[in-house]
Design a binder for these strands. Structure first.
Length: 468
RNA sequence: GUCCCCAUCGUCUAGCUCGGCCCAGGACACCGGCCUUUCACGCCGGCGACAGGGGUUCAAAUCCCCUUGGGGACGCCA
């Protein structure tokens, strides 16, 4: 705990790829816990794996965090810039006899691991170098000297007390032969030095925690609170991966998902507040309690995410959503109209489109003019309705392009002729949109406006005249 | 294989901490119906679960044990 009792949480991704859905949820929980308690949220990039870490990944992860609205109070802190610090702590352990140099090669270790596994044993470092009294040298690593008996335990805020037999642990590596410190070491040093009060991270780290607890003890650091959140699984109940579909936050952004939908979806995985399904950001901050996080893994359900996305498209500010459309329009090579036109399009289509991508696809006729497919022309632009349709076009041409006025015009025509709207509706729809499914005719008409709508209606009319 | 963790509808979950209010509630999906200018939206209704077995107790989804199933970890990755 910090001196003044302030909560400090952190998200510590390793920049070896995109921000994964699972990582995003961990970050969300961590962020929420900080915000809920009025604490600080720290972002730390764990890039001690020089081989796989890339700056590009770091950037993309930060971008995804920002897109999700997970703002941080400190950082990003890059571990690769703190190497001297870590080395001095390793030296301290070396000096105190709590760590030692080891000259075993990766190949040797790998071979031993293999035979252990084959014999049905748990692969563990066999302590070959523990008492050799080696000093530094090329190809050598530093290992921690762990007790071989006794137990190590810690209290997890989600899973309760977890105890592991020290005999299950082995003398893991603290410093690689290339001089880079390893995860277990740096995570402890940083969490301790940065005064992290609550370590919130994925379930897959529970097995590491006892090792880290031992490091905390070796340095005499106070233990933080631990909260290991359950994993997110794919439909087949195995760890969520690419073969289950999109797993990166960015991919969802690109498919036309709204950040509030993804956040709302993710937060409900292993966490709930009674029967509530929809949460605003502020509600989440007010209501989120790490103690309410469940213990079991959750299966990722794309359908429910889609439902939530639709919900936010349906209920969100149309103007804001309109502002997100240009990149989707450009991706399809459609021209980008003005903001107010886009806003009207959103209002028209949002009851029937679940993603921004769908807005553009379903509402394509708002952006481009295409002749309706021949089979639809044939079916709907029949000679029988030619005369009414001509009348209709003439009347509409002289009408104000507002929904009410247009509706009134058509209604009066219906009254005069005694026809049902059904007779006209689909032909009009096909003429204006090129499809049999669209928003309401009058909305479409009003939004398209005179200059886009009239030529399309006339084109349909001439088809009817040709057929006669 | 060893160790750790988990176990309510297909899925996300409420209920489990403080056993009775639960022959188990909500949501997604699915299936009907209503509304209707298409499709949606909306509304109404339906389908559907306490993994199994032992205990403890007057009483168990709720507590204990075992079995089974699932996940995770066993790296000079994090």
């Amino acid at each position: 705990m910090t001196e003044d009792g302030t909560v400090r949480t952190r998200f510590a991704p390793s920049p070896t790829g995109y921000l994964h859905i699972g990582g995003a949820r961990t970050a969300l929980f961590s962020w929420l816990h900080a915000r809920h308690t009025g604490g600080k949220f720290i972002l730390r990039v764990e890039d001690t794996d020089a081989q796989r870490s890339t700056e590009e990944s770091s950037l993309q992860i930060l971008e995804a965090m920002e897109w999700l609205g997970l703002d941080w109070d400190e950082g990003p802190i890059f571990q690769s810039k703190r190497l001297d610090l870590y080395r001095s702590y390793v030296q301290r352990l070396l000096d105190e006899g709590k760590a030692y140099w080891c000259e075993c090669t990766p190949d040797e270790l790998e071979a031993k691991r293999k035979t252990a596994l084959e014999k049905g044993e748990k692969p563990k470092y066999d302590l070959t170098c523990r008492n050799k009294g080696l000093g530094p040298g090329p190809g050598r690593v530093v290992r921690i000297a762990l007790p071989s008996s006794g137990v190590t335990s810690f209290d997890d805020m989600i899973k309760g007390r977890i105890t592991v037999d020290n005999a299950e642990l082995d003398d893991f590596i603290l410093l690689r032969s290339d001089g880079m410190p390893t995860y277990n070491l740096v995570v402890v040093i940083d969490d301790a030095l940065m005064n992290i009060t609550h370590v919130i991270r994925g379930d897959d780290h529970v097995n590491n925690t006892p090792r880290q607890v031992l490091i905390y003890q070796a340095f005499g650091f106070d233990l933080p609170f631990f909260a290991h959140v359950p994993m997110i699984l794919g439909a087949d109940k195995t760890r969520l991966s690419k073969r289950h579909g999109a797993t990166s936050v960015t991919a969802y952004k690109d498919m036309g998902y709204l950040p509030e939908a993804l956040v709302n979806y993710l937060v409900r995985l292993s966490w709930s507040h009674g029967d509530q399904e929809i949460f605003s950001r502020q509600e989440l901050i007010d209501l989120f309690d790490i103690h309410d996080v469940g213990r079991s893994a959750a299966v990722f359900n794309p359908e429910k995410l889609l439902w939530l996305n639709h919900h936010y498209i349906k209920t969100g500010d149309p103007d804001r959503i309109a502002g997100l459309l240009p990149e989707f329009l450009q991706a399809r090579g459609y021209p980008v109209p003005g903001r107010s036109y886009l806003t009207r399009v959103v209002t028209d289509v949002r009851e029937r489109t679940k993603t921004l991508e769908e807005v553009v696809e379903f509402g394509d006729f708002y952006f481009i003019d295409r002749e309706p497919p021949e089979d639809l022309c044939e079916k709907f632009f029949t000679p029988e309705i030619r005369d009414v349709f001509r009348l209709l076009v003439e009347k509409i041409e002289r009408t104000d392009f507002t929904k009410d006025a247009l509706e009134e015009t058509v209604q009066s025509l219906l009254n005069e002729t005694g026809l049902k709207f059904k007779v006209l509706a689909q032909p009009m729809r096909v003429a204006l949109t090129g499809k049999t499914v669209s928003p309401g005719i009058f909305e479409v008409l009003a939004t398209l406006g005179h200059d886009r709508a009239i030529p399309r209606l006339k084109r349909a009319l001439s088809y009817m005249e040709k057929e006669a």
